[in-house]
Design a protein around this nucleic acid. Structure first.
Lengths: 153, 153
DNA sequence: TTTTCTGCAAACGATTTGCATACAC
DNA sequence: GTGTATGCAAATCGTTTGCAGAAAA
């Protein structure tokens, strides 16, 4: 459940002397409109907006995604499919991140909400002196549907 | 500790009717010569070899890295620095993978050997029916050295 | 000999950048 | 008005591919 709104974006932008533009609003709106499991690439966002009358340029989409990422509104993720993808950042001090299960057969990306990494993070902090601020966990394997088909890889 | 040798490569190649070539041997040797913490990109491997008289082409490096990956000798990893990197695959049925700690300040990549994901993997299998065959875990934060400098991000 | 592999150069696709114009403040 | 943001096109960078010649089996 995300707490981001267009007003929140406006405030963050103001704080850092960035400008609230039509394009930045449109892009955040695309993410707010999508179910949260969707992981959108720059091309995805661009074509969604183009399909609804926007004249936005692809370079602007790239620049805005990076900006929204740096503001902590979006998270950049790599699924190894050749392009960077973004999702709304639902992380907050009380909720850990979800993990991604990537099916090697159908390439589907499934979200999994349990975190369970506190203990491991603590151990890392103690043993290596590394201060963790975020993590990214991907599990590769076969989803329920593909397990039932015979496993031809 | 890796068990891979040139002889092992020769055997694997034979099994699948691939040919043992000078170039494939050279590339594996680069990884055997490096300390295991090194994560080499295609460019890295190419320039290491070029710097020691080899006439190998970059395309061959790309093709060979992919082949060694498919044979299970190398693992491909993405650190978000714009290129794919490889490391010797030290995974075996008895030893889990290590994790990577990526420092947001100095960009150093540190290895961490504990795994501790069995419980989480089991929970995922039960709750989602997903069969896990591998995982990739990255922790982002600040390494011991950079924590001590004042944290300007 | 037969097939696979190599090096090169060209092609590719995602992302970035330079620049003149348009817009937010 | 001033400075930032935009759209476009060109540039960039990692990676892949086509192909003719070279090497392995």
């Amino acid at each position: 459940m995300s707490n981001f709104t267009i007003e929140y974006l406006r405030r963050l932008l103001q704080e850092k002397d960035y400008k609230m533009t039509e394009q930045r609003r449109e892009i955040l709106q695309v993410f707010l409109d999508q179910p949260s499991e969707h992981h959108l690439s720059a091309e995805d966002v661009h074509s969604v907006l183009r399909s609804k009358k926007s004249e936005i340029g692809l370079a602007t989409v790239y620049r805005s995604l990076e900006l929204l990422g740096s503001l902590g509104i979006l998270l950049k993720i790599e699924f190894g499919d050749g392009c960077s993808r973004y999702e709304l950042n639902t992380t907050n001090p009380n909720s850990h991140r979800h993990h991604h299960l990537i099916c090697l057969k159908c390439k589907k990306v499934i979200e999994f909400d349990e975190d369970k990494l506190d203990e491991l993070e603590e151990e890392i902090a103690i043993k290596s002196g590394f201060e963790i601020v975020n993590h990214e966990v991907k599990f590769f394997g076969y989803c329920k549907d593909c397990r039932n088909d015979n496993n031809e890889y």
